[in-house]
């Protein structure tokens, strides 16, 4: 399998879907002539023309709402919102309209649209350009929300999202665009199901639950924990935030008896809160320690680099949380207590 970037996987998948179905068209700010703020749509205007790659004015409510109406008449718009922070301008259209139309009108109209948008902080973009409000959408019945962490998942889930007859929020991440991974060649069957989590790494000591960029970080942390401390961490990449694959989470925690949620959004009422609630509902008797949540500090993200770093979750926070959880519950099975890395933990904080 060829290795490509997350960006390339998105680009190629958009192109493949546009070639497959002429009802698929792209709409968004700067996606055509400018070729996309993050170049996902580079070259597509030349190849498909302005009808299929439509530059929109800076009017999120207007063009996201227009995508809804176009979808109601049978087209399959794929809207790009430059970053998820700007989606707030379109909230009425997404929450009050896209999410409601199928149900509220008794199933008479479908809204097969995709909204692609990157989240993520950590680039000194400060408070209004660094948010991760995906939970607002994951909270809303009628929407589907996916958040792939690898190029292959990005491809499979983007295909599924475009072919799905419901509105899908497709969450990307600025820091993932340049990451690389193997992606299968174009096949009719490389569509991933929405609503199914992926056990990205198997393990028996502890379950790490994550999504989007943090799932990629979690994979590195799990490797590090294995090689340095002999800790076998299972990593669940949620991939889909709505529907949430609770069964995969619960099955894993019943096996490992411990869980840490690793997320980039704010902790209060966040994705991790829902995961933790699910675990206590369905695996209460299996838990050996409280579920921990690593999440962003609850402030509007500050600009100064050191302040920004202080607010955002890192791999080291996850390392520490894994050790703390294991320490609180008798350590790694058959491997004594996992206290070998305490020095490293304190050394690398901040």
């Amino acid at each position: 399998m060829p290795e490509v970037t997350y960006r390339q996987a998105l680009h190629d998948t958009l192109r493949d879907e546009m070639l497959r179905d002429e009802n698929v068209f792209l709409m968004g700010e700067e996606i055509g002539v400018f070729e996309g703020s993050y170049k996902i749509t580079a070259g597509l205007l030349q190849e498909f023309g302005a009808k299929r790659v439509r530059d929109a004015p800076i009017a999120e409510e207007g063009f996201v709402g227009a995508a809804i109406g176009a979808a109601m008449l049978g087209l399959r718009p794929v809207v790009e919102i430059m970053t998820i922070n700007f989606i707030l301008l379109a909230m009425d259209q997404i929450i009050n309209h896209a999410a409601k139309i199928h149900y509220m009108f008794g199933g008479q109209s479908r809204v097969p649209m995709v909204i692609r948008t990157p989240g993520g902080g950590g680039q000194q973009l400060a408070a209004t350009h660094s948010q991760n409000p995906e939970v607002w959408f994951a909270h809303t019945p009628g929407l589907k929300v996916v958040a792939p962490s690898t190029p292959a998942d990005a491809r499979g889930l983007l295909k599924a999202s475009i072919r799905d007859d419901d509105p899908v929020l497709f969450l990307e991440n600025l820091a993932l665009y340049n990451t690389k991974g193997e992606v299968p060649e174009d096949r009719p069957d490389d569509v991933l199901p929405i609503g199914v989590a992926d056990v990205k790494r198997e393990g028996s000591d502890i379950t790490i639950i994550s999504y989007s960029r943090m799932a990629a970080v979690a994979m590195h942390v799990a490797e590090q924990l294995a090689s340095e401390d002999g800790i076998k961490a299972e990593v669940i990449d949620l991939r889909s935030l709505r529907p949430l694959d609770r069964a995969t989470i619960v099955d894993s925690v019943r096996k490992t008896n411990r869980a840490v949620v690793f997320e980039e959004d704010w902790r209060a009422y966040g994705i991790g809160a829902e995961v933790a609630a699910t675990i206590q509902e369905h695996a209460f008797d299996h838990l050996d320690a409280p579920v921990r949540r690593i999440a962003a500090a609850e402030v509007p993200l500050p600009y100064a680099k050191n302040m920004e770093l202080a607010a955002l979750p890192t791999g080291q926070h996850l390392v520490d949380a894994v050790h703390a959880t294991l320490d609180a519950s008798g350590g790694v099975r058959g491997n004594g207590r996992s206290n070998g890395s305490k020095g490293q933990r304190s050394a690398s904080r901040g």
Binding site: R110, G142, D164, P193, G195, D245
Partner: peptide, 8 residues
């Protein structure tokens, strides 16, 4: 609730 049923 959904036009396309999906798992979970």
């Amino acid at each position: 609730d959904y036009a396309t049923d999906v798992p979970n």
